[in-house]
Every structure is written in structure tokens, then in C-alpha cells.
Design a protein around this nucleic acid. Structure first.
Lengths: 203, 203
DNA sequence: GCCCGATTAGACCGGTCGTCTAGAGGGAGG
DNA sequence: CCTCCCTCTAGACGACCGGTCTAATCGGGC
């Protein structure tokens, strides 16, 4: 069977499809791309698709799950960076958001922003993947805010969870406006709002 | 030519297509629906479509323009309602947002929320229609905030434009989250944020 | 050399957008 | 009252692309 060798090959193919898809779906959306385009771009024969995924919908679910897995790991890294206050770590997170969404680098475009509206009325499994992912983000941001408050580097009115939700909404909305306006002015506005909400203090 | 009689009939057909499309596109998105489905639902033969619209894209642009025309007119009505303070009118606007987006009434779903991410990478004319529409909303909200501040029923930190952008971002983001979570909790959170930002005072 | 599971090729059918030809409808002008 | 002519309707049609599935191929292990 060559389990080892073939398994690694198999996983590479799956990864290749997922990575390619992230790039393309991040621009064209989910209904807007055909499997064909993704498969050709990934150099994977069309016939193979149903060996790796059960359907286009199951594939979309996997794409989202895979995306959030990476994304949450990246947040954990940012929020654990040594030598920084919780306030600084949190502000770094928003800075990264601005940097990745504002750039022309489609590779890393946020699938949550791109797909939320399109997909949540279309597919229940995909909607739930989105729900799990965003809940994970909200949990982490809430934790970081609470830590900053406890540490004294953040001063907020109300509960950490409320602030986290408010800020996540702001950045989601700013991302939508940035797409509409093709400008990163909305992110600058979001950053101003963020500072007003969090009142970051020097450590 | 029968200009009058035929014109009214003609406009009815166009209206019918647009209204039906609003309902369907509001659920399925733009790439997610075929002209066929819309036309059948509207009871309009396919051949007529290209008499009224040049292409699917031009139709999408018209759909958005039409949507925002109504939407902006509704805002103007809300912001001109007699016997209310500017603060009350503004809070009514957000309440209406919550009511229409939170409901199951797809007829009136916000096309800006639904289509922004999907369409702004897909079609420049549609993106510009979105840009014009959202700019109109932002202008009106900014005006209402400024009026409330001048009147003394609103107390904000910073410029009215900043507050308007922050709040519009919040409500856009909350609408996305409401879709993802299938809950109107995000709107409740947005309302809390809104009150914190605007500090509405009794007249 | 054979076996057998992992992988692929390509057919399949239904739907996509857009086009095109024919003709129905109904006021205007003689 | 009849004809003209333009607006609008009708829906078949083409070329193409969608997701899915079956049947065949590939290639390592024995």
C-alpha cells in the first residue's frame, strides 16, 4: 500500500486544492468559481476531486475549517508574543488585520468577510463553520481584552465581551467598506474607534 | 406610439423584474441566481429581459441603484419625522435596521450587506453603485448626528463624520454576524455600542 | 505476475448567459 | 377603417460550463 509515501502525497494534493481555492475563492466567492478553475489552477485532475471531498459544499466547509484553523493559530501566536503588554498585543492584532486586508495580496484575504453574507443563506454546514470560527476569534479577543484590563494597560467601559463584539463588528464592517471603496480609509477609521474603545495605556 | 399607455406597462415590467430580483438576490446572492429563475418568478419571458437591461451586470447595477434610491428616500423620511428630536430620529433609524434585517422578511433584506463582499471584486459598475449608495447613507447619518449635537440631544467625542463611520461599520458588521449566527443578538450589541457612542439625551 | 485499493479520465445531463428570428399589440396617420 | 411601424414579447437555440459519477488505469506489496 505504501501507506506512508502515498498518504503524504495524498495530503499534499488536498492541501494544494485548499490553498489554491483560498486564493481563488477569496476573490471570486464561492458560487462564483467552478471546481474546474480551482482544480486546473491546482494542477489536480477533475476526476480526483470527489476522492478528496464529498461535494462542493463539503469542500467549502473544509476550506472554511482549514482557514480558521490557521487563523486562530496565528491569533494565539500574536496574543502570546513575549515582551509585550496585552494592550500592545491586541493593537498588533488589529494592525495585522489592516495590513492583510488592505494589501493586494489575495493569498491571505479574509474568507469570513468574503463569504459570510454569500454562504450563510446557502449552506448550513458552511454557515456553522463560519460560526465556529468567528466564535473562536471573539473568545480570544475577549480574553485579550480582559487580560489587558486586569493588567491595567486597557481601560474600557462595560464588559470585555461587549467591547470585543463591538470591535469585531467594527472591523468586519470596515472590511466591507474597504472592499466597496477600494481604499483603506475605513481601516484608519476602525483604528481610531478601536483606540477610543480600548484606551490603551503605556505599560 | 402610445407612449403613455405603453410606457406605464413597460415600467411595470421593469419594476416587476427589479422587485422580484431584490427578493431572490437578497437570499441567493448575485452569482448564485440565474436570470431564468428571476424571470420565471417575475412572470416575464426571457426575451424581454434584454429589452430592459443590457446584460446581467448592467441589470445588477440597476438593481443596486434602484435599491439605494428607495433606501435613501426612506432614511430621509425617518430623519424628517416631525415632533421628534434628532436623537430620537437617529435611534429610530437603527431600530428600523434591526427590525428589517432581523426579520425573516427577505423582501427588504439589505442588498448592501448581502452583495458588498461578493460583488465588489466582480464588477466595477456594481461596486461603484454600492459606493455611491453607502456614501449617501453615510452623508445622511453624519448630518443627523451633527444636527443632534447642535441641538444638544447627542453628545459625542470627536467629529460627527467619525461617529457616523464608526456606527455604520458596527451595524454592517453586526448584520454579517447576525447572518452567521442566525440570531439578532449582534444587533442588540450594536444598539448598546450605538448608545455608548451617541449618548442620546432626553429632548 | 497478480491483486487490490488509490487515483484519474472523461462522459453525463442540466443549467448558464446571451442571441436571434418571428410575431403580437396597439396607437398614429391617411 | 385600414395600414404602417415601432415597442415589446415569445421562447428556441448555441456554446459553454456546472457538479457528479462510473469505469478504467495506475502502481506498490507480495
Amino acid at each position: 500500500m505504501g501507506v506512508m509515501a502515498q498518504t503524504s502525497g495524498t495530503l499534499d494534493v488536498r492541501r494544494g486544492i485548499l490553498d489554491t481555492a483560498h486564493r481563488i475563492v477569496g476573490v471570486k466567492g464561492f458560487s462564483g468559481v467552478g471546481l474546474n478553475e480551482i482544480l486546473v489552477a491546482a494542477g489536480v485532475p477533475k476526476g480526483s476531486f470527489y476522492h478528496y471531498f464529498g461535494s462542493k459544499e463539503a469542500f467549502g466547509e473544509a476550506l472554511l475549517a482549514d482557514y480558521f484553523e490557521d487563523y486562530l493559530a496565528a491569533i494565539d501566536t500574536t496574543f502570546a508574543e513575549p515582551g509585550l503588554s496585552h494592550a500592545e498585543r491586541l493593537m498588533n492584532y488589529w494592525r495585522q488585520w489592516q495590513a492583510t486586508q488592505g494589501s493586494i495580496d489575495y493569498q491571505r484575504k479574509c474568507l469570513a468577510v468574503k463569504l459570510a453574507a454569500e454562504v450563510s443563506d446557502l449552506s448550513e454546514p458552511m454557515r456553522l463553520a463560519l460560526k465556529r470560527g468567528t466564535a473562536g476569534i471573539l473568545d480570544r479577543v475577549t480574553g485579550a481584552i480582559a487580560a489587558g484590563v486586569a493588567e491595567g494597560t486597557l481601560r474600557i467601559a462595560g464588559a470585555p465581551r461587549e467591547a470585543a463584539e463591538a470591535l469585531y463588528h467594527v472591523w468586519l464592517g470596515a472590511s466591507l467598506m474597504a472592499k466597496i471603496e477600494r481604499s483603506d480609509a475605513p481601516f484608519a477609521a476602525a483604528m481610531t474607534t478601536t483606540r477610543r474603545v480600548l484606551n490603551p495605556q503605556p505599560a
